[in-house]
Design a protein around this nucleic acid. Sequence first.
DNA 1: CCGCGTTGTTGAGCTCGGTTCAGTACTCCC
DNA 2: GGGAGTACTGAACCGAGCTCAACAACGCGG
Lengths: 221, 221
Amino acid sequence: MASRPRVRLDPQDRRAQLIALGLQILSARPASQVAVDDIAEAAGISRGLLFHYFSSKREFHLAVVQAAADELLTATDPDDTLPALEQLRLGLEAFVSFIERKHELYVALVRGSAGADPDLHAIFEDHRDKVAGRVCRVLGDAGGRPEVRTAVRGWLAFCEETVLHWMAHRTMRRQQLVMLCEQVVVAAVAAVLPPEDLPAWYREQAAAVAAAVPADAAARD
Amino acid sequence: MASRPRVRLDPQDRRAQLIALGLQILSARPASQVAVDDIAEAAGISRGLLFHYFSSKREFHLAVVQAAADELLTATDPDDTLPALEQLRLGLEAFVSFIERKHELYVALVRGSAGADPDLHAIFEDHRDKVAGRVCRVLGDAGGRPEVRTAVRGWLAFCEETVLHWMAHRTMRRQQLVMLCEQVVVAAVAAVLPPEDLPAWYREQAAAVAAAVPADAAARD
DNA sequence: CCGCGTTGTTGAGCTCGGTTCAGTACTCCC
DNA sequence: GGGAGTACTGAACCGAGCTCAACAACGCGG
């Protein structure tokens, strides 16, 4: 095959092209099953150039995963002017939509970074911490407590797993999924805080959840 | 270095030795950073023999991860004769203890299998499904519902993340951690089931949780 | 329009590590 | 003690990540 004409790009553009390509390719199959040649060929460049932009295949992988995490973070960026509960719900909706559009990317790049490489894991950890930070900020003063952060982190894992399992098996209506996640965060935070430390809007929400669910049993006492 | 005397073992013993060694080594650093030579040398055998027992490095890795999953599964094996709530609590306690003893193994092998290799992922998926099955069985008839399974899967992810974050940051007392997980499973399952479908013991638990938490707010209505 | 420096780009070749396989040596049994 | 069966070895192979010296596209001054 006659090599195509040599194309010259700004380093910035080239890098962007390679990362965009990486998002595609590494969503479809794991890095260990993708040869550097595959990436280079898909980009229409030589192996050597890839190593000019990324000092190793691993570093390329890191850059792509970081890009995926950033993409998710901006896709779920909340509107600070809205009331807290609204921010939570919209954030959840945005997350579900993101997974619906790109769950392969999410599984392969964001969640998939958990094991394997410590640096990959660090990116994932950082991402989750940023999201947890957002949620905690919404919770107000109580969000600063370390035990609340643990609960929120757990809740994020809950949402991730629930949404992915839902995507795969469609076990309920979409709205029901969002409500499930909402109710769980209420329960999780309430479980680690004395009631007097809960934000006012939050207490009302918790009361509503509590009242709605085991209605007759609660009525007995 | 004069090679040590050739040691001959039963294939069964040799395999067990190699997997035990794999559990150690692969807990400490990721498979991609462990050479086949490292494993062989640590085991006191030649590279070739490892390939006699496992057709590839990847298959060795799979066998080790499977062993780790099995270990966790037996460590948290519940006693079917106990009441449901007791089984849940004991299972949680056992899980926390397991992580306390071997969180590196857990992170590297069980959880860490999420991304990367589809076969590794399948082992993880299978493991989580078995645990979810246990929990659903405890829930009785309601546990058969698909939406309950989604909620339970999410809850397992919640427990995993919560316990690992707790291990790293010690943000609360151990007992509080277990209670947090208990209360969240109650909330999660209650959120996807109409109250009349909840098991009786479960409704009482849910009512107790609900009553205890936002006490004054609930009292207002 | 032509040289010339800058710099994006190339690809042959090196190295390292997973994999193979023909051969070795231990052990058991007659 | 010799032969068969089998656990085991290690040198050679091969493919994929990585290096580096050379190349070619573009901009600019003359």
